[in-house]
């Protein structure tokens, strides 16, 4: 094993990175009186009452469902659009190709906040505020440039001969996409999906502007309301936060490799 002096600074960093999560989880199992008496302590009689309260008395389940719907919808839509476009951009020659790729790629750095004003006005006009469909469209648009960039880069690395062999086998371009390109692109697709899901699930800005209705709120928008209302019940708040974080934590634990690869893809451009 390598020199272990690095363990000292690394442990400090790890404690700093972990402490808030530990605080969140530990506190979520405590009760309000214990917390008021001592802010930093293990639960004396750990109980799930806060979770029961969050799930039964408060609309965390509803919010979670809304977040899930939005995340799944926008990631799915964006992935389909990005796959189709990236396939043409990476593997076909046509006029305007480099312009489309260049514009799409540069949109990766456009701050989302600058796009919302006209869309908010338009959605008000069309009655699309508080609709999942309208919001999914915005999220999908915001995350698609990254998808196009990542997949175009990846599709270009596939060997030309595979495409030529498939053409000789009589496969048309769409069949080559579904039968050859997509099966070979699973790692890249997974990276893209987890990174985009993280973005949509965790976003607050679009959610509180475009989904203001109580029944349409996402988890993150819900938390922003909840913490204002239950500011004093810290253990209950922490249970809600833990619930809101669990889906992405599961995704992270299951697909850690793909998270890192996906994020790295953005950095090497």
């Amino acid at each position: 094993m390598r020199p272990s002096w690095t363990h000292v600074p690394l442990s400090l960093i790890a404690v700093a990175a972990l402490a808030p999560s530990v605080f969140m989880v530990v506190t979520s199992f405590r009760n309000l009186e214990d917390y008021a008496a001592d802010k930093v302590a293990w639960p004396e009689s750990p109980g799930l009452s806060n979770y029961v309260s969050a799930l039964v008395e408060h609309p965390f389940v509803k919010w979670g469902f809304n977040s899930l719907l939005l995340t799944a919808g926008s990631v799915l839509l964006s992935t389909i659009v990005a796959v189709l476009a990236a396939y043409a951009l990476a593997r076909m020659r046509f006029a305007g190709r480099s312009v489309i790729l260049g514009v799409s790629t540069s949109l990766m750095v456009v701050p989302p906040v600058t796009m919302i004003v006209p869309l908010f006005v338009l959605y008000t006009q069309l009655g699309l505020i508080n609709t999942f469909g309208g919001t999914i469209l915005i999220y999908a648009g915001l995350i698609t440039p990254f998808g196009v960039f990542l997949l175009t880069t990846f599709f270009r690395t596939l060997p030309d001969e595979l495409f030529e062999a498939a053409r000789l086998d009589g496969a048309g371009s769409f069949r080559i996409l579904t039968n050859v390109v997509l099966p070979l692109s699973l790692p890249a697709l997974l990276s893209l999906i987890v990174v985009n899901a993280l973005y949509v699930w965790n976003d607050l800005l679009i959610a509180i502007i475009f989904l203001q209705d109580d029944s349409r709120r996402t988890l993150m928008a819900g938390i922003s309301v909840f913490q204002g209302r239950y500011n004093n019940n810290v253990p209950l708040t922490m249970a809600g936060l833990t619930l809101a974080s669990v889906p992405m934590l599961i995704l992270y634990v299951a697909f850690q490799r793909y998270f890192i690869r996906g994020l790295m893809a953005g950095a090497v451009k």
Partner: peptide
């Protein structure tokens, strides 16, 4: 004609086998 319509076949230097298909699927893909 399109390559597939010429009744020719080609073996590539890099073999160009589809990595996600087994030998049988590679052979009968066309």
């Amino acid at each position: 004609l399109e390559p597939a319509d010429r009744r020719v076949s080609m073996v590539f230097q890099t073999y160009a086998l589809y990595p996600h298909m087994n030998v049988r699927e590679n052979m009968d893909f066309g």
